[in-house]
């Protein structure tokens, strides 16, 4: 069953019918936001059933949009979060990627500013590596990007997408060895993105990120995971009652190859390990469970089929 990432936007009225329908179809609700009278759902829905969902949501004035980044967690690294350099382009990028379904985390570097002193601490590096992809938002000068890049890519294992003031071609030339994706002409600017060409640039970032993540997906498909991350999320939400006491809007964050569970590691890791996915198969048997560098959360990475020999 091929699941398609979608965003559903509609009213609060009878939205529970949509929730039930998605669950009945065998889909997964990754995020649910209720904002005043509106409901926004990020979900994975079986491809064949999209039209049914559309038909049901029509009388409720709901809208079903394809959202390519649902089920991904993306790190957005801003070179500086200095107050006198506000507003930062990173805010707009993070917000826009969220509309495409991604769960974004902004990372401001402790000593990131400036090409000479910019560096990544081990904590920053580890946090970035916990994501599916990282976007580096560089400034306007090619010289600085060329000089800074080796520092910022050291130890990073996840795909890197770079944005900066120079053109895409100039970025490609400046960065050696190449990174996964480039979006040029989007460097430092001192205003919010409102005009059409700027929004088009944000769309370009979304499509570049989708392209890179599609590549990663097809790589994962070569040796599929023992369980789909969305299903793992469902199992955790069902069988770990303490997760419902978490006040965070997204207590279980779905990633491409795992989930981040927002419960403290020490008291809950053992309990999580014993959660039964199917008869005789526990989470601990098919996943690596380790402490996340982000607060004291639990990071669950799903092991591939070739490793566990199980597919649930």
């Amino acid at each position: 069953m091929i699941q398609v990432p979608i965003t559903y936007k509609g009213g609060v009225y009878r939205h529970d019918e949509i929730l039930d329908l998605i669950e009945d179809m065998g889909g997964y609700i990754i995020q649910k936001h209720i904002i005043a009278q509106d409901v926004v759902l990020q979900a994975l829905v079986p491809r064949d059933d999209i039209e049914t969902l559309r038909a049901v949501s029509r009388p409720l004035a709901g809208e079903v949009i394809f959202a390519p980044l649902v089920g991904t967690e993306i790190a957005i690294v801003s070179m500086s979060l200095e107050i006198h350099h506000l507003p930062h382009a990173s805010c707009d990028v993070a917000e826009y990627l969220r509309t495409a379904g991604a769960k974004t985390n902004m990372i401001g570097l402790a000593r990131g500013f400036g090409k000479r002193i910019g560096l990544l601490s081990d904590e920053e590096r580890d946090i970035i590596n916990e994501h599916d992809l990282v976007i580096y938002l560089f400034g306007n000068f090619e010289t600085c990007i060329r000089q800074k890049m080796p520092t910022f890519r050291r130890g990073i294992h996840v795909p890197i997408v770079v944005t900066g003031g120079p053109s895409t071609d100039a970025l490609k030339k400046a960065i050696d060895p190449p990174v996964a994706g480039y979006v040029g002409e989007f460097g430092r600017f001192m205003h919010r993105t409102k005009e059409a060409p700027e929004i088009a640039k944000l769309d370009e970032i979304v499509s570049e990120v989708s392209r890179v993540l599609d590549g990663r997906r097809s790589e994962i498909a070569k040796d599929p995971m023992s369980i789909s991350p969305a299903r793992l999320m469902d199992v955790i939400l069902e069988q770990l009652p303490d997760i419902h006491d978490v006040t965070s809007p997204v207590p279980v964050v779905v990633q491409m190859d795992g989930v981040r569970v927002k419960l403290p590691y020490d008291p809950f890791a053992a309990q999580l390990k014993e959660v039964e996915v199917e008869k005789g198969v526990t989470v601990g048997m098919i996943c690596d469970i380790r402490p996340s560098r982000m607060r004291d959360y639990i990071l669950v990475k799903i092991r591939p089929f070739s490793d566990t020999g199980q597919m649930v």
Binding site: H84, G114, M190
Partner: peptide, 10 residues
Amino acid sequence: MQVICPEGFK
């Protein structure tokens, strides 16, 4: 001027 000037120019 400080706002205009590039990040890191301290």
